[in-house]
């Protein structure tokens, strides 16, 4: 179980990015974190990953305090971030450096097959499309079998069609070992398609404004009335989170935050 206890983050330049976030996430749960730009959702994810530890409060995974990257926690970034000097198979096996060669090769092959890229193992990252590259990144994060997988706007750089495709594919992969997924996104549809729970954050300092449970059976129909109902609730919460946020220093920042949400 992943427990966040009053996680705060103040950067050395004085910016108060996170103001005490407390959440409990059950094993296998999928949580989407959504909010306007600058609400601290990426900061929260980076604090959980241990890449950018919280300045106050604690992140506990199965009772163990996380203050640096941990082998039970995998992360997928907005960009694939594949190493251009390693072939696809080398990239997927990157996190298995300490394993014997044979085991590594077998696990890489299985995972590549699972993400549908078995035929691309010997290709260079440059030769892949954006969607394929992100699949390789997903495979790379899944190969060490993490208990918690963090995703930082993983599909936002992809076209709408590839995005929907990869969202379904992610759920399919998740069903194998059912890791906990924490997904940062600004795409309301994506949050509702994937998550059991949508957390809406508000800025200055970043904190959780509202939580909306998504009690829809999977696979979820993006066109159904029930989906639309949840979507309205999330949008309403987002709207309120923005108007209730501590008055921003200038109106411009607020307007741009709103624009980012409604694109």
């Amino acid at each position: 179980m992943l427990v966040l206890d009053r996680v705060s983050k103040t950067y050395p330049n004085g910016v108060h990015a996170l103001g005490g976030v407390s959440v409990e996430v059950d094993p296998g749960e999928i949580v989407a974190v959504i909010g306007g730009s600058g609400c601290g959702k990426s900061t929260l994810l980076r604090a959980i990953s241990g890449l950018d530890p919280a300045s106050e409060g604690t992140v506990l995974l199965d009772g163990e305090r996380i203050s640096a990257p941990h082998q039970k926690i995998g992360i997928i970034f907005q960009e694939p971030r594949l190493l251009p000097w390693l072939k696809v198979a080398g990239n997927v096996g990157f996190g298995l450096g300490d394993r014997p060669k044979q085991e590594r090769a077998a696990r890489v092959a299985t995972t590549l097959k699972r993400v549908g890229l078995a035929d691309k193992a010997a290709m260079w990252p440059r030769e892949l499309s954006g969607g394929q590259a992100q699949r390789v990144a997903i495979a790379r994060a899944l190969v060490p079998r993490p208990e918690v997988l963090l995703l930082d706007e993983p599909f936002s750089a992809l076209d709408a069609f590839t995005r929907t495709d990869l969202q379904d594919h992610l759920l399919d992969l998740w069903a194998d070992a059912k890791p906990t997924l924490i997904l940062v996104t600004h795409d309301v549809d994506e949050a509702i398609v994937l998550a059991d729970r949508v957390m809406v954050m508000c800025p200055r300092p970043g904190r959780i404004f509202d939580e909306i449970a998504v009690d829809l059976p999977r696979p979820r129909d993006r066109q159904s009335a029930a989906f639309d109902f949840v979507k309205r609730r999330v949008l309403a919460a987002l709207d309120r989170s923005l108007s209730r946020a501590v008055a921003p220093a200038d109106g411009e920042a607020k307007a741009s935050a709103g624009a980012a949400l409604w694109w």
Partner: peptide
């Protein structure tokens, strides 16, 4: 720096 961060996420030692 984004690739260096990948290395950190996979807990590479300084030498690695």
């Amino acid at each position: 720096r984004k690739l260096v961060e990948v290395g950190r996420a996979f807990r590479l030692s300084d030498v690695q």
